[in-house]
């Protein structure tokens, strides 16, 4: 059995939800809406986040290229991804939304440019 407290961020209210796990059943109390319960459940099972960071630009006017994953990845993979991206250089020209790294570290998500570099 595991208990954990998760703050819901679906709305500004910030409900504190309590999650109890017993016999592989997850029980959630403390949320006030279905969306909140859904969020808390997902957050409990496997928290997912969008990674945003910047990459070195090989040449060109800008020094850094801002990037993000094209969807949420497992939270525990954020730091390994950032470490990996230290080895990646963006080569201009780069367009908004362009895929820089496909299926980054097998997360199932691409890394896309969130800016342009000529």
């Amino acid at each position: 059995m595991r208990n954990s407290e998760i703050v819901c961020i679906v709305c500004p209210k910030g409900c504190r939800a309590l999650v109890r796990e017993k016999n592989r059943r997850v029980e959630i109390t403390g949320t006030e809406c279905a969306r909140g319960a859904e969020y808390v459940r997902n957050e409990y099972i496997e928290p997912m986040r969008v990674l945003t960071t910047t990459l070195t630009v090989e040449s060109g006017g800008k020094r850094r290229l801002s990037v993000r994953t094209d969807g949420k990845i497992k939270k525990k993979l954020l730091i390994p991804c950032v470490r990996y991206l230290k080895t990646v250089k963006a080569v201009p020209p780069i367009h908004m939304g362009e895929v820089i790294v496909e299926n980054m570290l097998d997360t199932g998500m691409d890394l896309i440019a969130t800016d342009e570099v000529e």
Partner: peptide, 19 residues
């Protein structure tokens, strides 16, 4: 502002600042 959180109301999307 390279983080996300922009445009949730207007575009119903979670965009970064530059986007």
């Amino acid at each position: 502002c390279i983080h996300t959180g922009f445009g949730l109301l207007r575009f119903d999307e979670d965009l970064t600042g530059p986007e």
